Amino acid sequence: MSLVLRLLLFAHASTDALAVARFPSDDPLSDRGRRELRRVHPPVVDHALTAPERRAVETAAALGARAEPDTALREVDYGNWTGRSMSEVPEADLAAWLTDPHAAPHGGESIAALLDRTRCWLDTMTDRSGRWLAVTHPSVVRAATVCALGAPASAFWRVDVRPVSVTRLHARDGRWTLRLT
């Protein structure tokens, strides 16, 4: 009998950075984010993990999850773009980052590196079973979805993840499936 892992990837609630199209730092939830969470029914899980950033930890706490921090779930490293608005970033650099998964003009993490990190994390999860919650960032949810589907890195920006959304993945025999409900 093979182990089955049910993984709920929960995108953290809104922040002020999201509202103004700014690359986030360790931002807290906004008033809007706290309102979003009041409308969410906490999922029933056996185990919970959270990205280490404040907005993810606050989201996990609002869900009533006693979540263990996992650095593999951390936000993509925006390098010297952290805290800057998109309009402050040179257009050519932003275009390169959005079209080339290996580009990191900000001096931080490329999308390809984020995908590799997320793929490694998913691999470590496949020997577990039960119902797991991972409160993390839209970038990590996008990466996990791309990895689970075996899609190319170029598909990363085609996955839209909104705040407080839940993406369901199941693992069995080391293989991931995306479950839509």
Rank of each mutant, 00 (worst) to 15 (best):
I111N: 07
T177C: 05
T167Q: 13
R162I: 06
H47Q: 11
S139G: 15
L9Y: 02
P105D: 07
L49F: 13
A62G: 02
W157N: 11
D100H: 09
V161L: 14
H41L: 02
M86C: 10
L115S: 09
P138D: 09
R142M: 03
W81S: 15
D46H: 08
T99N: 10
A11N: 09
E88S: 14
L29P: 00
S87H: 10
R128L: 08
A61D: 09
A48C: 07
R179C: 06
D100Y: 02
C147S: 15
W132S: 01
L9N: 00
S139I: 00
P43T: 00
W176R: 15
A144F: 05
R168Q: 09
L37N: 03
P42Y: 07
A11E: 01
A17H: 08
T181R: 15
G150T: 12
R172T: 12
I111L: 05
S30Q: 08
A48P: 01
R39C: 06
A13W: 02
A148E: 09
E58D: 07
A103I: 03
T167K: 06
H47Y: 15
V159M: 13
A13P: 01
A171D: 06
A171N: 07
H47S: 12
A19P: 01
R175W: 05
V44I: 12
A72Y: 00
L18S: 04
R175I: 06
G174C: 14
V20T: 15
V146S: 12
A153T: 01
V159N: 05
R162A: 11
A104F: 01
R158F: 05
P28D: 04
H41P: 01
F23A: 14
R119N: 12
F156N: 11
G174M: 09
P42N: 06
H12V: 04
A96T: 12
S87D: 08
V135L: 08
D100L: 08
W81C: 13
T82L: 08
T118W: 02
A17W: 01
A171P: 02
H170K: 13
V57W: 03
G150N: 10
E109P: 01
R35H: 11
T118Q: 07
R74L: 07
S87I: 07
L94M: 15
T99Q: 11
R35I: 06
A112Q: 06
L94F: 14
